[in-house]
Design a binder for these strands. Sequence first.
DNA 1: CTGCGACCTTGTTTTGGATCAATCGCTTGG
DNA 2: CCAAGCGATTGATCCAAAACAAGGTCGCAG
Lengths: 257, 257
Amino acid sequence: MRPISPAPRPQLGTPATGMAALAVPDPCAHCDARPVSVCSALEEKDLHRLAALAEVLEVAPGKTFIAEGEKPEHFFNVTGGTARLYKLLPDGRRQITGFARQGHFLGLAVGEANAFSAEALEKVWVCRFSRTRLRQVLDDFPAFERRLLGTAANELVAAQEQMLLLGRKTARERVASFLLAQARPLRPCDAPPGRFHLPMTRTDIADYLGLTIETVSRTMTRLKTEKLIALPSPAEVVLLDRARLESLAGGFEEERF
Amino acid sequence: MRPISPAPRPQLGTPATGMAALAVPDPCAHCDARPVSVCSALEEKDLHRLAALAEVLEVAPGKTFIAEGEKPEHFFNVTGGTARLYKLLPDGRRQITGFARQGHFLGLAVGEANAFSAEALEKVWVCRFSRTRLRQVLDDFPAFERRLLGTAANELVAAQEQMLLLGRKTARERVASFLLAQARPLRPCDAPPGRFHLPMTRTDIADYLGLTIETVSRTMTRLKTEKLIALPSPAEVVLLDRARLESLAGGFEEERF
DNA sequence: CTGCGACCTTGTTTTGGATCAATCGCTTGG
DNA sequence: CCAAGCGATTGATCCAAAACAAGGTCGCAG
């Protein structure tokens, strides 16, 4: 595993074309950690071969590029922007199962139907592979398959964490957990930013945390009045007291005053 | 993929030793479907080689064989019995993330710590591999790795379904979904039984569905008085009206009378 | 047989978050 | 400039499920 040196690399919020679409952020200089990605385990020569099998697409905000229940035709690597992944009940209740950012792999779904829908929150760039070629790709790139297994294992861990949140945490604990997760950098070794932008609406946050929009709003307001966070604007968050947020998110009893 | 013909195979509730520990139920005569399992994609000769790398263990009821937060030393294939998989919050709140039955694979966890604990509900038989040999096993058995990826993808789909349940379904819908899932046979092509045994307590069910024990009990009682199910004993369930249960579980509006 | 402990059920009260209902600020388009 | 529309916030009320509280049933050890 080493830097994919001379190839241009996409920045968050910029499109990526050709081979660059498969690239990922530079590994950390100290620990070599990178966000889990389709190709982060591949050598440069393999990247070129893989790029020939892929198409690069730009998805406009609000556009659905994976539809729950439909036959899976492709698999995707998100290279920029953010997408919401969700499931619906027949009466319209929605559960967002995750937000896909740069490096996220979509379409592992086995069987006859996609288990969820994916919709661009903001402009999204994806690198798309034909599903019929997946077998070929896996056979040709053993490192790719190994990496995919690692990706899936990571997602499974995240899904279990989310089940704990949805099944057993209070609204306050859920929002604290969410804000801390959003503050997590793409490369785990980077320092988490104290200030960041939320690309999703309050409705998205509510549907992700199993709450209503009103409860999300009230809870954020309360965290603000308690000086745990600041909200320069509804979509800008500043973490003012990370320690107390961590303790809240982890489900520790709240200290009494 | 074909039957592992002459090898003895474990029955639910019976121990398995030696190579049989790696075996799975007979494939369905009609569709060749089997429960997802470590070895269900392997040829018989590979099974023998793989068996040499594994130990067979019997886990007594109540015993924890994977502990959340500890360094993962092994990975497991459950060959009989049922285990609860759970995460805890510091104050003791518990979320059961799943129940592992015959064929379930445990320990894909990446990184330095197990993401959950696993505890035998009833007597459990597992086939255990040393984690340090995982790399070797994956390298030696490409079909194993492919199967593992399929397993992980299936679990991811189940986890997303559970997130929908925990985030957006009512108590009634959760219990209906749970009962139907418990009625699902190990081989998907088999007809689901109309009557089955619940190996877990009401407390386990509550911690799996994000409810309290009282709500689970009341909801089951109500389904019983409405003749959707019968409960010959607390642990024996008979599905009396599968269609209405499916509709309930799927989140369709309840029909008015 | 009796007493104990686990587990389950049922009744009552409480409450966290949902629901219903405005209002406020932006942005956009006329 | 104003109107319309959308997202966010805030307030008032409601309710599904939690919490609290008894009992009941069963299996088992003494």
